[in-house]
Every structure is written in structure tokens, then in C-alpha cells.
Amino acid sequence: MAWLYVLLAAVVEIFWVIGLRYSDSTLEWIGTVVAIIISFYAIIKACEKLPAGTVYAVFTGSGAAAIVIIDFVMFHAEFTMMKVLFIAIIITGVIGIKMTTGEKETAEGGE
């Protein structure tokens, strides 16, 4: 369940980062702020079961890679093979962290 919170946070991060760049109206800014709150709430919930450093690394890495890809596809950002290579490195790192990190084990009576 903790990894689902990380995934939710990363997906919502895409919306609030785009909102920070393109919001023009009050309603769009309110949506951006709500997305930030949801994203950080999901991070906090994930940190209850996973190491904070792992959560943050996966959250920022996957979100950054997704945002760059969306910039290429939707906003026609400059596309270079070097950018693709570095996105691939980020994604490889995120997958590696996910594969090598388990949930925290809680002892009976708390940690």
C-alpha cells in the first residue's frame, strides 16, 4: 500500500508542476495548491511504511521523468537523445530503488 501512495504522489506531482508553470486563473491556482497538498499527504503516508529517503528519491525521480516526457509530447519541448538517456538513467534508478527496498518492519508495541 505504501508504494501506491508513492505512485499517487508522483502522478499528482505532474499536475501541480504543470499548474505552477501554466496556471493563469484563481481556480487553476487553487487546483494547483490542492494537488500539492494531496501529493505531500501521500508522501507522508508512504513514509510511515517506507524509508523517507527512498520515498523522496522515487517520488522526485519518477515525477521528474514523467514531467520531461510530458513536456516533449504535450508542450513541444526540445527533444534530444541526451535528455532521453538521462531520463532512462533516472527511470533505471527509480526501478532499482523500488526493487531493493521493502516496507519497514514494525515491532509489536511500536518502534
Rank of each mutant, 00 (worst) to 15 (best):
G93C: 08
E111K: 13
V68E: 06
A77T: 10
I70G: 08
M82Q: 14
A52F: 15
I18W: 13
H76G: 12
A107T: 10
G110M: 12
A77Q: 09
Y5N: 08
V12Q: 04
D24Y: 11
S23Y: 04
A64H: 05
F40D: 05
K104N: 11
V6I: 14
V34N: 03
L85M: 12
E108I: 15
V58N: 00
Y56P: 01
V17K: 01
K45C: 04
K83Q: 14
V73H: 06
E111S: 11
E78H: 12
W3N: 01
E103H: 07
D24G: 13
G110L: 10
Y56M: 06
T26G: 14
T80P: 07
F15L: 11
V58M: 00
I44H: 13
K104W: 07
H76I: 08
W3H: 01
L7N: 09
V6R: 03
T54P: 04
E48I: 07
S23D: 03
M99I: 07
F59P: 01
T60R: 07
I30A: 09
I67M: 03
I91K: 04
F79M: 12
M74R: 15
K98C: 00
I37V: 14
F59R: 01
V84S: 10
I14A: 00
Y5K: 05
T100N: 14
V73D: 07
T32H: 02
G110H: 11
L20Y: 06
K83H: 08
E105Q: 15
V55S: 00
Y22S: 10
I18A: 13
G31V: 07
E105S: 15
I97S: 00
E105R: 14
A107K: 10
A35F: 11
A65K: 05
I87E: 01
G53K: 04
I14G: 00
A42P: 03
Y22I: 12
W16V: 02
Y22M: 07
G102I: 09
G63C: 02
G96M: 08
L50F: 02
F59V: 01
T60V: 15
T54Y: 06
G110V: 11
A10F: 03
A42W: 08
D24W: 11
A10S: 15
I36W: 05
T54G: 05
T92I: 14
E48S: 08
I37T: 08
K104T: 10
K104R: 15
I14N: 00
A42V: 06
D24A: 13
I43H: 07
L50I: 11
I44R: 11
L27F: 12
L27P: 06
S25C: 02
A42S: 14
L50R: 00
V84N: 03
R21H: 05
R21E: 10
V68S: 09
M81S: 12
G53H: 02
F86H: 04
E28N: 05
G53R: 02
A107E: 13
I38E: 00
E103N: 13
W3T: 00
E103I: 08
A42K: 01
E105C: 08
D24F: 12
G53E: 09
E105K: 14
T32C: 11
E78S: 11
I67Y: 03
F40N: 13
